[in-house]
Design a protein around this nucleic acid. Sequence first.
DNA 1: ATGGTTGATGGTCAA
Length: 261
Amino acid sequence: MRLITWNINSVRLRIELLARLVEETKPDIVCLQETKVEDALFPAQRIAEMGLPHQAIWGQKSYNGVAILARQPVSDIQRFDRAGKSDCRHVAATVDGVGIHCLYIPSGGDVPDPAVNEKFAHKLAFVEELTAWGPTATKASEPTIWCGDFNIAPLEHDVWSHKELLDVVSHTPVEVEALTRMQASLGWIDVARHFVPASQKLYSWWSYRAKDWETSDRGRRLDHVWTTPVLAPRLKHHAVVRDARGWTQASDHAPVIVDLT
DNA sequence: ATGGTTGATGGTCAA
């Protein structure tokens, strides 16, 4: 089973990039974030033609929006309000016996202080709520995947410069500690780091603002795939589709692939 | 310390 998570940054603008990704990588499940479209306008038919006719979507106008797209039927679709908002950041469904959760954790704005920045407070509240909810919702023995744009790069080598990003939202100690607590309370596997040693740089996002993203390579690992321990023996492969960051009119996030047997 | 780019929208807001 091949799963891809991708912050597509507008599914309508980049629908043909999604088609290319699906054609080149043949995923069974695609989790999208930042679809930026309400459900009635979601390009469901075009995506069905790509071979992903079974869909759990939850979007709104302009902002946010998540989707699970699958070759096989989806069941038990759930849409979760989080941190007091109904802003289309968490959709879940069961596919091939695996619980799939597609998450878009708030970016958090610019100032890493919850007292003065409501967006950063929202981000922390979102993570705290998931931390409390996760273990009550899922046992470690259940095959479950949480994936998506978590907007936090937790490890030193998840960013191009640990020192320079310590006060940059996405890598500040307070949010890194919150995400680390979430993973510890769940006791799940960070799939990328299951395959790539923590000593090795690994990114999934490069800013649009860089003059030359590829050469400067100032990336961050914001996109994650976590699984319950019961899935460990089924984990076979992981890859960041870095090429996709260089496609014409690319998303600033690259897709992340995980293969399970 | 600042500015740099992109997307949805139609003036800005969010990232």
